[in-house]
Design a protein around this nucleic acid. Structure first.
Length: 573
RNA sequence: GUCCCAGUAGCUCAGUCGGAUAGAGCAACAGCCUUCUAAGCUGUGGGUCGGGGGUUCGAAUCCCUCCUGGGACGCCA
Protein backbone atom coordinates (compact mmCIF):
# COMPACT_ATOMS: atom_id res chain seq x y z
CA UNK A 1 0.00 0.00 0.00
CA UNK A 2 2.89 2.32 0.80
CA UNK A 3 4.08 2.22 -2.80
CA UNK A 4 0.66 3.44 -3.94
CA UNK A 5 0.76 6.28 -1.44
CA UNK A 6 4.07 7.37 -2.92
CA UNK A 7 2.83 7.15 -6.48
CA UNK A 8 -0.43 8.91 -5.73
CA UNK A 9 1.43 11.67 -3.89
CA UNK A 10 3.53 12.28 -7.01
CA UNK A 11 0.41 12.52 -9.14
CA UNK A 12 -1.32 14.92 -6.76
CA UNK A 13 1.80 17.01 -6.42
CA UNK A 14 1.61 17.91 -10.11
CA UNK A 15 -1.93 19.20 -9.62
CA UNK A 16 -1.69 20.85 -6.21
CA UNK A 17 2.02 21.63 -5.69
CA UNK A 18 1.64 20.15 -2.21
CA UNK A 19 4.75 18.47 -0.82
CA UNK A 20 4.48 14.73 -1.63
CA UNK A 21 5.74 13.82 1.84
CA UNK A 22 2.92 15.78 3.42
CA UNK A 23 0.41 14.08 1.15
CA UNK A 24 1.81 10.66 2.01
CA UNK A 25 1.42 11.38 5.70
CA UNK A 26 -2.16 12.58 5.22
CA UNK A 27 -3.37 9.57 3.24
CA UNK A 28 -5.54 7.11 5.06
CA UNK A 29 -7.68 4.11 4.34
CA UNK A 30 -11.40 4.91 4.11
CA UNK A 31 -13.55 3.44 6.88
CA UNK A 32 -15.70 1.59 4.38
CA UNK A 33 -14.29 -0.38 1.46
CA UNK A 34 -16.98 0.91 -0.86
CA UNK A 35 -15.67 4.44 -0.35
CA UNK A 36 -12.45 3.67 -2.21
CA UNK A 37 -8.89 2.55 -1.60
CA UNK A 38 -7.09 5.68 -0.46
CA UNK A 39 -8.55 8.84 1.06
CA UNK A 40 -7.17 12.33 1.35
CA UNK A 41 -8.73 14.53 4.07
CA UNK A 42 -8.68 18.16 2.94
CA UNK A 43 -9.14 20.03 6.24
CA UNK A 44 -5.43 20.71 6.33
CA UNK A 45 -5.47 22.93 3.23
CA UNK A 46 -8.50 24.91 4.25
CA UNK A 47 -6.79 27.81 5.99
CA UNK A 48 -4.00 28.30 3.53
CA UNK A 49 -6.22 28.15 0.47
CA UNK A 50 -9.04 30.05 2.13
CA UNK A 51 -11.63 27.56 0.96
CA UNK A 52 -13.93 25.09 2.59
CA UNK A 53 -12.48 21.54 2.72
CA UNK A 54 -15.51 20.31 0.80
CA UNK A 55 -14.76 22.68 -2.06
CA UNK A 56 -11.11 21.66 -2.06
CA UNK A 57 -12.07 17.98 -2.22
CA UNK A 58 -14.38 18.74 -5.14
CA UNK A 59 -11.66 20.62 -6.95
CA UNK A 60 -8.99 17.94 -6.52
CA UNK A 61 -11.40 15.18 -7.47
CA UNK A 62 -12.41 16.96 -10.67
CA UNK A 63 -8.80 17.58 -11.68
CA UNK A 64 -7.57 14.04 -11.24
CA UNK A 65 -8.92 11.80 -13.93
CA UNK A 66 -7.01 9.86 -16.53
CA UNK A 67 -4.04 8.58 -14.53
CA UNK A 68 -2.97 5.02 -15.13
CA UNK A 69 -2.82 3.95 -11.49
CA UNK A 70 -5.83 6.01 -10.46
CA UNK A 71 -9.07 4.79 -11.91
CA UNK A 72 -11.11 7.62 -10.48
CA UNK A 73 -11.27 10.18 -7.71
CA UNK A 74 -14.51 11.03 -5.96
CA UNK A 75 -15.17 13.87 -3.55
CA UNK A 76 -17.11 12.78 -0.52
CA UNK A 77 -17.65 15.73 1.78
CA UNK A 78 -14.23 16.99 2.88
CA UNK A 79 -12.47 13.87 1.56
CA UNK A 80 -11.19 12.85 -1.83
CA UNK A 81 -11.51 9.11 -2.23
CA UNK A 82 -9.29 7.43 -4.79
CA UNK A 83 -10.03 4.16 -6.52
CA UNK A 84 -6.94 2.39 -7.78
CA UNK A 85 -6.81 0.69 -11.15
CA UNK A 86 -7.02 -2.85 -9.89
CA UNK A 87 -5.23 -4.57 -12.74
CA UNK A 88 -2.20 -2.35 -12.52
CA UNK A 89 -2.04 -2.41 -8.74
CA UNK A 90 -2.41 -6.17 -8.71
CA UNK A 91 0.57 -6.71 -10.97
CA UNK A 92 2.77 -4.45 -8.89
CA UNK A 93 1.81 -6.14 -5.64
CA UNK A 94 2.41 -9.65 -6.92
CA UNK A 95 5.72 -8.65 -8.49
CA UNK A 96 6.81 -7.19 -5.15
CA UNK A 97 6.11 -10.51 -3.49
CA UNK A 98 7.74 -12.64 -6.17
CA UNK A 99 10.85 -10.51 -6.32
CA UNK A 100 10.86 -9.71 -2.59
CA UNK A 101 11.13 -5.98 -3.04
CA UNK A 102 11.38 -5.39 0.68
CA UNK A 103 8.50 -7.67 1.50
CA UNK A 104 10.43 -10.30 3.43
CA UNK A 105 13.92 -8.89 3.68
CA UNK A 106 15.66 -5.54 3.81
CA UNK A 107 19.10 -4.40 4.78
CA UNK A 108 18.93 -1.41 7.05
CA UNK A 109 21.05 -3.33 9.54
CA UNK A 110 23.90 -3.63 7.06
CA UNK A 111 25.53 -6.43 9.08
CA UNK A 112 25.74 -4.42 12.30
CA UNK A 113 25.68 -6.65 15.35
CA UNK A 114 22.79 -6.49 17.78
CA UNK A 115 22.53 -8.44 21.02
CA UNK A 116 19.09 -9.53 22.18
CA UNK A 117 18.73 -10.54 25.83
CA UNK A 118 15.79 -12.93 26.02
CA UNK A 119 14.16 -15.71 28.01
CA UNK A 120 16.62 -15.69 30.93
CA UNK A 121 14.95 -18.17 33.28
CA UNK A 122 16.26 -18.93 36.76
CA UNK A 123 18.19 -22.09 37.47
CA UNK A 124 16.53 -24.66 39.73
CA UNK A 125 13.08 -23.28 39.07
CA UNK A 126 10.44 -24.60 36.69
CA UNK A 127 10.10 -22.95 33.30
CA UNK A 128 6.78 -21.22 33.84
CA UNK A 129 4.27 -19.40 31.67
CA UNK A 130 5.89 -16.28 33.07
CA UNK A 131 9.02 -16.99 31.02
CA UNK A 132 7.09 -17.56 27.83
CA UNK A 133 6.68 -13.88 27.06
CA UNK A 134 10.33 -12.93 27.05
CA UNK A 135 11.18 -16.09 25.12
CA UNK A 136 8.68 -15.71 22.30
CA UNK A 137 8.82 -11.91 22.03
CA UNK A 138 12.61 -12.05 22.07
CA UNK A 139 12.67 -14.75 19.42
CA UNK A 140 10.32 -12.82 17.14
CA UNK A 141 12.28 -9.59 17.55
CA UNK A 142 15.51 -11.47 16.81
CA UNK A 143 13.96 -12.88 13.64
CA UNK A 144 12.69 -9.45 12.61
CA UNK A 145 16.08 -7.83 13.10
CA UNK A 146 17.77 -10.63 11.17
CA UNK A 147 15.33 -10.03 8.30
CA UNK A 148 16.57 -6.43 8.20
CA UNK A 149 20.21 -7.36 7.74
CA UNK A 150 21.40 -7.29 11.35
CA UNK A 151 23.77 -9.88 12.72
CA UNK A 152 21.73 -10.99 15.72
CA UNK A 153 23.18 -12.47 18.91
CA UNK A 154 20.53 -14.26 20.95
CA UNK A 155 21.67 -14.29 24.53
CA UNK A 156 20.10 -16.33 27.31
CA UNK A 157 21.04 -14.44 30.47
CA UNK A 158 20.38 -17.32 32.87
CA UNK A 159 19.73 -16.58 36.52
CA UNK A 160 22.44 -18.83 37.87
CA UNK A 161 23.85 -16.79 40.74
CA UNK A 162 22.73 -15.10 43.92
CA UNK A 163 21.65 -15.77 47.49
CA UNK A 164 18.80 -18.00 46.29
CA UNK A 165 21.43 -20.70 45.77
CA UNK A 166 22.46 -20.34 49.39
CA UNK A 167 18.84 -20.95 50.31
CA UNK A 168 18.49 -24.02 48.13
CA UNK A 169 21.73 -25.53 49.38
CA UNK A 170 20.72 -24.95 53.01
CA UNK A 171 17.32 -26.49 52.35
CA UNK A 172 18.87 -29.42 50.50
CA UNK A 173 21.13 -30.28 53.41
CA UNK A 174 18.32 -29.84 55.93
CA UNK A 175 15.41 -31.59 54.25
CA UNK A 176 16.52 -32.89 50.88
CA UNK A 177 16.20 -36.53 49.89
CA UNK A 178 19.07 -37.10 47.43
CA UNK A 179 17.25 -39.91 45.63
CA UNK A 180 14.08 -37.92 45.19
CA UNK A 181 16.01 -34.86 44.03
CA UNK A 182 18.07 -36.97 41.66
CA UNK A 183 14.96 -38.40 40.02
CA UNK A 184 13.00 -35.20 39.66
CA UNK A 185 15.46 -32.36 40.14
CA UNK A 186 13.56 -29.21 39.20
CA UNK A 187 10.36 -30.08 40.99
CA UNK A 188 12.19 -31.20 44.12
CA UNK A 189 14.60 -28.27 44.17
CA UNK A 190 11.73 -25.88 43.75
CA UNK A 191 9.85 -27.64 46.54
CA UNK A 192 12.89 -27.20 48.77
CA UNK A 193 13.03 -23.51 47.84
CA UNK A 194 9.37 -23.14 48.77
CA UNK A 195 9.91 -25.02 52.04
CA UNK A 196 12.85 -22.77 52.87
CA UNK A 197 10.63 -19.69 52.74
CA UNK A 198 7.93 -21.36 54.81
CA UNK A 199 10.44 -22.38 57.46
CA UNK A 200 12.19 -19.03 57.40
CA UNK A 201 9.03 -17.35 58.63
CA UNK A 202 9.37 -19.18 61.95
CA UNK A 203 13.17 -19.42 61.91
CA UNK A 204 14.62 -16.17 60.57
CA UNK A 205 18.14 -17.43 61.32
CA UNK A 206 17.83 -19.55 58.16
CA UNK A 207 18.26 -16.38 56.12
CA UNK A 208 21.64 -15.80 57.75
CA UNK A 209 22.62 -19.38 57.05
CA UNK A 210 21.67 -18.93 53.41
CA UNK A 211 23.74 -15.77 53.11
CA UNK A 212 26.70 -17.51 54.75
CA UNK A 213 26.30 -20.49 52.46
CA UNK A 214 26.23 -18.30 49.39
CA UNK A 215 29.33 -16.49 50.64
CA UNK A 216 30.99 -19.93 50.91
CA UNK A 217 29.94 -20.63 47.34
CA UNK A 218 31.41 -17.35 46.20
CA UNK A 219 34.63 -18.15 48.02
CA UNK A 220 34.92 -21.34 46.02
CA UNK A 221 33.84 -24.13 48.34
CA UNK A 222 34.20 -27.18 46.13
CA UNK A 223 31.36 -29.20 47.63
CA UNK A 224 28.87 -26.35 47.19
CA UNK A 225 30.17 -25.54 43.74
CA UNK A 226 29.66 -29.13 42.64
CA UNK A 227 26.06 -29.04 43.81
CA UNK A 228 25.57 -25.65 42.09
CA UNK A 229 27.00 -26.94 38.81
CA UNK A 230 24.79 -29.98 39.00
CA UNK A 231 21.71 -27.74 39.44
CA UNK A 232 22.72 -25.80 36.36
CA UNK A 233 23.16 -28.98 34.33
CA UNK A 234 19.78 -30.45 35.21
CA UNK A 235 18.04 -27.12 34.74
CA UNK A 236 19.58 -26.58 31.32
CA UNK A 237 18.52 -30.08 30.32
CA UNK A 238 14.93 -29.30 31.24
CA UNK A 239 15.03 -25.88 29.58
CA UNK A 240 16.50 -27.44 26.45
CA UNK A 241 13.43 -29.62 26.14
CA UNK A 242 11.22 -26.51 26.25
CA UNK A 243 13.38 -24.61 23.81
CA UNK A 244 13.27 -27.49 21.34
CA UNK A 245 9.51 -27.58 21.62
CA UNK A 246 9.24 -23.81 21.14
CA UNK A 247 11.82 -23.74 18.36
CA UNK A 248 13.93 -21.23 20.26
CA UNK A 249 17.66 -21.11 19.71
CA UNK A 250 20.44 -19.08 21.29
CA UNK A 251 23.86 -18.07 20.13
CA UNK A 252 25.04 -17.54 23.70
CA UNK A 253 24.14 -19.15 27.02
CA UNK A 254 25.77 -16.71 29.40
CA UNK A 255 24.45 -16.79 32.96
CA UNK A 256 24.91 -14.13 35.58
CA UNK A 257 27.82 -16.06 37.07
CA UNK A 258 29.73 -15.54 33.83
CA UNK A 259 30.30 -11.93 34.85
CA UNK A 260 31.65 -12.69 38.34
CA UNK A 261 35.21 -11.93 37.29
CA UNK A 262 34.23 -8.86 35.27
CA UNK A 263 32.76 -6.76 38.07
CA UNK A 264 35.97 -5.25 39.42
CA UNK A 265 36.76 -3.76 36.04
CA UNK A 266 33.38 -2.01 35.95
CA UNK A 267 33.89 -0.54 39.40
CA UNK A 268 37.38 0.55 38.41
CA UNK A 269 36.11 2.26 35.29
CA UNK A 270 33.39 4.10 37.22
CA UNK A 271 35.97 5.14 39.75
CA UNK A 272 38.39 6.31 37.11
CA UNK A 273 35.72 8.46 35.50
CA UNK A 274 34.79 9.94 38.86
CA UNK A 275 31.22 8.71 38.83
CA UNK A 276 31.18 6.89 42.18
CA UNK A 277 29.92 8.63 45.27
CA UNK A 278 29.70 7.17 48.78
CA UNK A 279 26.22 7.34 50.23
CA UNK A 280 25.19 5.68 53.50
CA UNK A 281 28.27 3.51 53.20
CA UNK A 282 27.37 2.24 49.73
CA UNK A 283 28.88 3.36 46.46
CA UNK A 284 26.45 4.79 43.95
CA UNK A 285 26.26 6.72 40.70
CA UNK A 286 24.12 9.81 41.13
CA UNK A 287 21.55 10.30 38.38
CA UNK A 288 20.09 13.63 39.48
CA UNK A 289 20.66 15.08 36.03
CA UNK A 290 17.75 13.03 34.69
CA UNK A 291 15.79 12.93 37.97
CA UNK A 292 16.35 9.27 38.64
CA UNK A 293 17.25 7.71 41.98
CA UNK A 294 20.93 6.76 42.39
CA UNK A 295 22.22 3.56 40.83
CA UNK A 296 23.74 1.27 43.47
CA UNK A 297 27.06 -0.18 42.41
CA UNK A 298 28.54 -1.58 45.60
CA UNK A 299 26.96 -2.49 48.90
CA UNK A 300 28.37 -1.15 52.18
CA UNK A 301 29.95 -4.58 52.71
CA UNK A 302 31.76 -4.23 49.41
CA UNK A 303 29.69 -6.73 47.40
CA UNK A 304 28.52 -5.78 43.93
CA UNK A 305 24.89 -5.68 42.86
CA UNK A 306 22.47 -6.42 40.06
CA UNK A 307 23.23 -3.12 38.37
CA UNK A 308 26.97 -3.78 38.45
CA UNK A 309 26.41 -7.16 36.84
CA UNK A 310 24.23 -5.72 34.09
CA UNK A 311 26.78 -3.02 33.39
CA UNK A 312 29.45 -5.70 33.09
CA UNK A 313 27.16 -7.67 30.77
CA UNK A 314 26.41 -4.63 28.60
CA UNK A 315 30.11 -3.77 28.28
CA UNK A 316 30.93 -7.40 27.47
CA UNK A 317 28.31 -7.50 24.75
CA UNK A 318 29.57 -4.25 23.31
CA UNK A 319 33.33 -4.69 23.62
CA UNK A 320 33.82 -8.42 23.32
CA UNK A 321 30.86 -9.45 21.18
CA UNK A 322 30.87 -6.32 19.04
CA UNK A 323 27.22 -5.39 19.54
CA UNK A 324 26.30 -1.83 18.61
CA UNK A 325 22.65 -2.23 19.68
CA UNK A 326 21.41 -3.94 22.83
CA UNK A 327 17.87 -5.19 23.27
CA UNK A 328 16.57 -6.38 26.62
CA UNK A 329 13.32 -8.32 26.51
CA UNK A 330 12.56 -8.07 30.19
CA UNK A 331 9.40 -7.38 32.20
CA UNK A 332 8.07 -3.88 32.67
CA UNK A 333 8.76 -3.96 36.40
CA UNK A 334 12.46 -3.49 35.61
CA UNK A 335 11.97 -0.27 33.70
CA UNK A 336 13.68 1.93 36.25
CA UNK A 337 16.62 -0.45 36.46
CA UNK A 338 17.27 -0.26 32.73
CA UNK A 339 16.84 3.51 32.62
CA UNK A 340 19.56 3.67 35.24
CA UNK A 341 21.86 1.21 33.47
CA UNK A 342 21.53 2.97 30.12
CA UNK A 343 22.19 6.33 31.66
CA UNK A 344 25.25 5.13 33.54
CA UNK A 345 26.57 3.79 30.23
CA UNK A 346 26.11 7.18 28.67
CA UNK A 347 27.80 8.90 31.65
CA UNK A 348 30.70 6.52 31.06
CA UNK A 349 30.89 8.04 27.61
CA UNK A 350 29.56 5.16 25.51
CA UNK A 351 27.64 6.27 22.45
CA UNK A 352 25.96 2.91 22.12
CA UNK A 353 23.94 3.80 25.23
CA UNK A 354 21.58 5.57 22.82
CA UNK A 355 21.04 2.24 21.04
CA UNK A 356 20.03 0.28 24.12
CA UNK A 357 16.38 -0.65 24.34
CA UNK A 358 14.34 -2.16 27.12
CA UNK A 359 11.56 -4.10 25.42
CA UNK A 360 9.14 -4.23 28.32
CA UNK A 361 6.04 -6.35 28.66
CA UNK A 362 3.29 -6.82 31.20
CA UNK A 363 3.19 -9.45 33.87
CA UNK A 364 1.68 -12.89 33.54
CA UNK A 365 -0.53 -13.42 36.54
CA UNK A 366 -2.51 -16.26 37.97
CA UNK A 367 -5.96 -15.66 39.44
CA UNK A 368 -5.20 -11.97 39.47
CA UNK A 369 -1.96 -12.41 41.42
CA UNK A 370 1.67 -12.42 40.50
CA UNK A 371 3.02 -15.91 39.88
CA UNK A 372 5.40 -16.78 42.66
CA UNK A 373 7.83 -19.66 42.66
CA UNK A 374 8.33 -19.05 46.37
CA UNK A 375 4.71 -19.75 47.08
CA UNK A 376 4.52 -22.51 44.52
CA UNK A 377 1.94 -20.58 42.48
CA UNK A 378 3.15 -21.19 38.96
CA UNK A 379 1.81 -22.63 35.75
CA UNK A 380 4.42 -24.78 34.07
CA UNK A 381 4.78 -23.98 30.39
CA UNK A 382 5.25 -27.62 29.58
CA UNK A 383 1.87 -28.56 31.06
CA UNK A 384 0.14 -25.93 28.96
CA UNK A 385 1.98 -26.91 25.78
CA UNK A 386 1.29 -30.60 26.30
CA UNK A 387 -2.39 -29.86 26.83
CA UNK A 388 -2.45 -27.85 23.59
CA UNK A 389 -0.69 -30.63 21.69
CA UNK A 390 -3.10 -33.29 22.86
CA UNK A 391 -6.07 -31.12 21.90
CA UNK A 392 -4.51 -30.61 18.47
CA UNK A 393 -3.99 -34.35 18.14
CA UNK A 394 -7.63 -34.99 18.96
CA UNK A 395 -8.83 -32.55 16.32
CA UNK A 396 -6.55 -34.03 13.68
CA UNK A 397 -7.75 -37.54 14.42
CA UNK A 398 -11.30 -36.32 14.01
CA UNK A 399 -10.88 -34.18 10.89
CA UNK A 400 -7.92 -35.55 9.01
CA UNK A 401 -7.36 -39.14 10.13
CA UNK A 402 -5.22 -40.04 7.13
CA UNK A 403 -2.66 -37.31 7.80
CA UNK A 404 0.95 -38.47 7.85
CA UNK A 405 3.20 -37.56 10.73
CA UNK A 406 0.34 -36.65 13.06
CA UNK A 407 2.64 -36.20 16.04
CA UNK A 408 4.79 -33.63 14.33
CA UNK A 409 1.79 -31.65 13.09
CA UNK A 410 -0.02 -31.82 16.43
CA UNK A 411 3.07 -30.41 18.06
CA UNK A 412 3.37 -27.62 15.48
CA UNK A 413 -0.27 -26.64 16.00
CA UNK A 414 -0.33 -26.95 19.77
CA UNK A 415 2.85 -24.97 20.24
CA UNK A 416 1.66 -22.49 17.61
CA UNK A 417 -1.50 -21.84 19.60
CA UNK A 418 0.45 -21.06 22.77
CA UNK A 419 3.06 -18.87 21.07
CA UNK A 420 0.64 -16.93 18.88
CA UNK A 421 -1.72 -16.28 21.77
CA UNK A 422 1.09 -14.55 23.60
CA UNK A 423 2.43 -12.71 20.58
CA UNK A 424 -0.78 -11.28 19.16
CA UNK A 425 -1.25 -9.05 22.18
CA UNK A 426 2.08 -7.54 22.83
CA UNK A 427 1.03 -4.54 24.82
CA UNK A 428 2.27 -3.68 28.24
CA UNK A 429 -0.90 -5.29 29.44
CA UNK A 430 -0.69 -7.69 32.30
CA UNK A 431 -2.12 -11.05 31.30
CA UNK A 432 -4.19 -13.11 33.67
CA UNK A 433 -3.33 -16.63 32.58
CA UNK A 434 -6.21 -18.44 30.91
CA UNK A 435 -5.82 -22.02 29.73
CA UNK A 436 -8.88 -21.56 27.53
CA UNK A 437 -7.25 -18.69 25.66
CA UNK A 438 -3.79 -20.23 25.59
CA UNK A 439 -4.95 -23.40 23.84
CA UNK A 440 -7.77 -21.95 21.70
CA UNK A 441 -7.83 -23.00 18.03
CA UNK A 442 -10.73 -20.89 16.71
CA UNK A 443 -10.74 -17.30 15.56
CA UNK A 444 -7.68 -15.10 15.92
CA UNK A 445 -5.25 -17.88 16.78
CA UNK A 446 -2.05 -19.50 15.58
CA UNK A 447 -3.88 -22.63 14.39
CA UNK A 448 -6.23 -20.45 12.32
CA UNK A 449 -3.23 -18.97 10.54
CA UNK A 450 -1.61 -22.38 10.13
CA UNK A 451 -4.89 -23.80 8.87
CA UNK A 452 -5.17 -21.06 6.27
CA UNK A 453 -1.62 -21.72 5.17
CA UNK A 454 -2.33 -25.45 4.80
CA UNK A 455 -5.49 -24.61 2.89
CA UNK A 456 -3.57 -22.51 0.38
CA UNK A 457 -0.94 -25.24 0.08
CA UNK A 458 -3.65 -27.79 -0.56
CA UNK A 459 -5.08 -25.81 -3.47
CA UNK A 460 -1.64 -25.31 -5.00
CA UNK A 461 -0.85 -28.99 -4.53
CA UNK A 462 -3.97 -29.97 -6.43
CA UNK A 463 -3.10 -27.54 -9.20
CA UNK A 464 0.41 -29.00 -9.34
CA UNK A 465 1.78 -25.50 -9.01
CA UNK A 466 4.15 -26.27 -6.16
CA UNK A 467 5.66 -29.22 -8.01
CA UNK A 468 6.01 -27.47 -11.34
CA UNK A 469 7.38 -24.34 -9.75
CA UNK A 470 5.35 -22.03 -11.92
CA UNK A 471 6.04 -18.44 -10.95
CA UNK A 472 3.14 -16.22 -9.96
CA UNK A 473 4.21 -13.50 -12.37
CA UNK A 474 3.91 -15.84 -15.32
CA UNK A 475 0.44 -16.76 -14.14
CA UNK A 476 -0.46 -13.10 -13.96
CA UNK A 477 0.92 -12.48 -17.41
CA UNK A 478 -1.29 -15.16 -18.83
CA UNK A 479 -4.25 -13.64 -17.04
CA UNK A 480 -3.66 -10.09 -18.21
CA UNK A 481 -4.74 -10.78 -21.74
CA UNK A 482 -8.11 -11.41 -20.24
CA UNK A 483 -10.51 -8.50 -19.99
CA UNK A 484 -12.48 -9.42 -16.93
CA UNK A 485 -12.55 -7.14 -13.91
CA UNK A 486 -11.14 -7.95 -10.52
CA UNK A 487 -13.87 -8.69 -8.02
CA UNK A 488 -14.01 -7.36 -4.47
CA UNK A 489 -12.86 -10.47 -2.58
CA UNK A 490 -9.79 -10.68 -4.82
CA UNK A 491 -9.12 -6.99 -4.45
CA UNK A 492 -9.40 -7.13 -0.65
CA UNK A 493 -6.80 -9.86 -0.56
CA UNK A 494 -4.45 -7.89 -2.83
CA UNK A 495 -4.69 -4.89 -0.56
CA UNK A 496 -3.91 -6.92 2.57
CA UNK A 497 -0.89 -8.50 0.89
CA UNK A 498 0.30 -5.07 -0.15
CA UNK A 499 0.69 -4.05 3.49
CA UNK A 500 3.25 -6.74 4.30
CA UNK A 501 6.38 -4.73 3.62
CA UNK A 502 5.44 -1.62 5.61
CA UNK A 503 4.13 -3.81 8.43
CA UNK A 504 7.41 -5.64 8.80
CA UNK A 505 9.43 -2.42 8.87
CA UNK A 506 7.13 -0.90 11.45
CA UNK A 507 7.30 -4.05 13.57
CA UNK A 508 11.10 -3.73 13.55
CA UNK A 509 11.07 -0.01 14.34
CA UNK A 510 8.67 -0.49 17.22
CA UNK A 511 10.12 -3.87 18.25
CA UNK A 512 6.54 -5.11 18.24
CA UNK A 513 5.86 -8.59 16.83
CA UNK A 514 2.13 -8.21 17.46
CA UNK A 515 1.96 -6.02 14.35
CA UNK A 516 3.02 -9.03 12.28
CA UNK A 517 0.48 -11.22 14.06
CA UNK A 518 -2.35 -8.77 13.43
CA UNK A 519 -1.41 -8.33 9.81
CA UNK A 520 -1.17 -12.03 9.06
CA UNK A 521 -4.61 -12.48 10.63
CA UNK A 522 -5.95 -9.85 8.25
CA UNK A 523 -4.34 -11.66 5.33
CA UNK A 524 -5.89 -14.95 6.46
CA UNK A 525 -9.34 -13.43 6.82
CA UNK A 526 -9.08 -11.87 3.38
CA UNK A 527 -7.86 -15.15 1.89
CA UNK A 528 -10.59 -17.25 3.51
CA UNK A 529 -13.23 -14.87 2.24
CA UNK A 530 -11.67 -14.97 -1.23
CA UNK A 531 -11.45 -18.76 -1.00
CA UNK A 532 -15.12 -18.96 -0.12
CA UNK A 533 -16.31 -16.55 -2.78
CA UNK A 534 -14.03 -17.38 -5.70
CA UNK A 535 -13.54 -20.92 -7.02
CA UNK A 536 -9.88 -21.39 -7.87
CA UNK A 537 -9.30 -24.79 -9.44
CA UNK A 538 -12.52 -24.84 -11.43
CA UNK A 539 -12.24 -21.31 -12.83
CA UNK A 540 -11.62 -20.87 -16.56
CA UNK A 541 -8.01 -20.65 -17.63
CA UNK A 542 -6.97 -16.97 -17.36
CA UNK A 543 -8.92 -16.38 -14.15
CA UNK A 544 -7.65 -19.64 -12.71
CA UNK A 545 -4.09 -18.52 -13.36
CA UNK A 546 -4.67 -15.26 -11.54
CA UNK A 547 -6.31 -16.94 -8.57
CA UNK A 548 -3.51 -19.47 -8.31
CA UNK A 549 -0.96 -16.70 -8.43
CA UNK A 550 -2.75 -14.92 -5.63
CA UNK A 551 -3.05 -18.13 -3.61
CA UNK A 552 0.66 -18.67 -3.97
CA UNK A 553 1.46 -15.11 -2.92
CA UNK A 554 -0.80 -15.54 0.11
CA UNK A 555 0.89 -18.80 1.02
CA UNK A 556 4.31 -17.17 0.84
CA UNK A 557 3.23 -14.18 2.94
CA UNK A 558 1.68 -16.36 5.63
CA UNK A 559 4.68 -18.65 5.73
CA UNK A 560 7.07 -15.71 6.08
CA UNK A 561 4.98 -14.24 8.89
CA UNK A 562 4.86 -17.54 10.74
CA UNK A 563 8.61 -17.91 10.42
CA UNK A 564 9.14 -14.40 11.79
CA UNK A 565 6.91 -15.17 14.75
CA UNK A 566 8.62 -18.48 15.40
CA UNK A 567 5.75 -20.80 14.44
CA UNK A 568 5.93 -23.83 12.20
CA UNK A 569 4.03 -23.93 8.91
CA UNK A 570 3.01 -27.46 7.96
CA UNK A 571 1.81 -27.83 4.37
CA UNK A 572 -0.95 -30.11 5.53
CA UNK A 573 -2.73 -30.25 8.88
C1' G B 1 4.37 9.79 49.64
C1' U B 2 6.89 10.15 44.53
C1' C B 3 7.24 8.15 39.71
C1' C B 4 5.86 4.55 35.65
C1' C B 5 2.17 1.45 32.98
C1' A B 6 -2.84 0.17 32.04
C1' G B 7 -8.47 1.29 31.94
C1' U B 8 -12.60 0.68 24.83
C1' A B 9 -18.80 -4.64 23.83
C1' G B 10 -20.36 -10.02 28.90
C1' C B 11 -14.80 -11.88 28.03
C1' U B 12 -9.81 -11.17 25.30
C1' C B 13 -8.15 -7.23 22.62
C1' A B 14 -7.45 -3.62 17.80
C1' G B 15 -7.66 1.49 16.90
C1' U B 16 -3.71 5.96 20.66
C1' C B 17 2.31 10.60 15.92
C1' G B 18 -6.06 14.18 16.16
C1' G B 19 -10.15 12.93 10.94
C1' A B 20 -15.85 10.01 7.90
C1' U B 21 -21.41 6.01 11.29
C1' A B 22 -15.48 3.37 17.39
C1' G B 23 -13.56 -2.34 14.81
C1' A B 24 -12.13 -7.80 15.33
C1' G B 25 -12.17 -12.58 17.81
C1' C B 26 -14.53 -15.48 21.76
C1' A B 27 -19.26 -16.40 23.97
C1' A B 28 -25.01 -16.16 22.35
C1' C B 29 -28.45 -16.62 18.35
C1' A B 30 -29.59 -17.58 12.84
C1' G B 31 -27.76 -19.44 8.14
C1' C B 32 -23.79 -22.08 4.71
C1' C B 33 -20.39 -28.68 3.51
C1' U B 34 -23.02 -33.92 -3.64
C1' U B 35 -18.10 -28.21 -5.17
C1' C B 36 -10.55 -26.38 -3.92
C1' U B 37 -9.38 -28.77 4.22
C1' A B 38 -16.33 -26.17 8.08
C1' A B 39 -9.55 -25.30 12.73
C1' G B 40 -13.68 -22.02 7.67
C1' C B 41 -17.47 -18.29 5.62
C1' U B 42 -21.99 -14.99 6.10
C1' G B 43 -25.58 -12.47 9.18
C1' U B 44 -28.03 -10.59 14.10
C1' G B 45 -27.80 -8.57 18.84
C1' G B 46 -24.24 -6.19 22.11
C1' G B 47 -20.57 0.51 23.64
C1' U B 48 -21.63 6.92 29.12
C1' C B 49 -14.13 4.58 24.66
C1' G B 50 -13.02 4.85 33.64
C1' G B 51 -15.37 10.18 35.37
C1' G B 52 -15.04 15.51 34.74
C1' G B 53 -12.92 19.79 32.53
C1' G B 54 -9.96 22.00 28.42
C1' U B 55 -7.46 22.74 23.30
C1' U B 56 -9.52 22.13 18.06
C1' C B 57 -13.44 22.88 12.31
C1' G B 58 -12.96 17.80 14.48
C1' A B 59 -10.74 13.99 20.53
C1' A B 60 -10.91 6.87 22.20
C1' U B 61 -6.33 9.59 20.46
C1' C B 62 -3.39 15.84 22.78
C1' C B 63 -3.39 18.85 27.83
C1' C B 64 -5.16 19.25 33.13
C1' U B 65 -7.59 16.81 37.13
C1' C B 66 -9.78 12.93 39.74
C1' C B 67 -11.07 7.49 40.23
C1' U B 68 -9.69 2.20 39.74
C1' G B 69 -6.07 -1.82 39.00
C1' G B 70 -0.90 -3.17 38.64
C1' G B 71 4.26 -2.08 39.17
C1' A B 72 8.80 0.45 40.72
C1' C B 73 11.12 3.46 44.33
C1' G B 74 19.93 2.17 47.91
C1' C B 75 22.42 -2.05 49.93
C1' C B 76 17.41 -8.94 46.21
C1' A B 77 17.64 -10.18 41.02
Amino acid sequence: MQRFYTQLAQVLHTYTQVDPNLLTSLFEIPPDKSLGDIALPCFRFSKEWKKAPQAIAQEIASQVTHESLIERAVAQGPYVNFYLTRKIALTEVLDDVVQDRGVFTSNRGNSQTVAVDLSSPNIAKPFSMGHLRSTVIGTAISNLLASDGYNVLRINHLGDWGTQFGKIIVAYHAWGDPVLVQNNPITQLNALYVKFHEEALAHPELEDQARATFKRLEDGNEEDLALWRWMIDVSLAEFARMYTLLGTTFTHNLGESFYNDKMDAVVAELLQKNLLVTSDGAEVVMLDDISLPPCLIRRSDGATLYATRDLAAALYRHKELGASHLYYVVGNEQKLHFQQIFHVLSLLGYDFAASCYHIAFGMMRLDGRKMSTRKGQVVRLEDVVQEAISRARAIIEEKNPTLHDVEHVAQAIGVGAVIFNDLKTNRLHDIDFSLTNAVAFDGETGPYVQYTHARACSVLRKANVLQEDVSPSSMVTSWQNNHSDIDDPTWNLIKEISKASATRLRAIDEADPSLIAKHVLDVCQAFNYFYHECPILTAEAPVRALRLALTDATRVIIRASLVLLGLQHPAEI
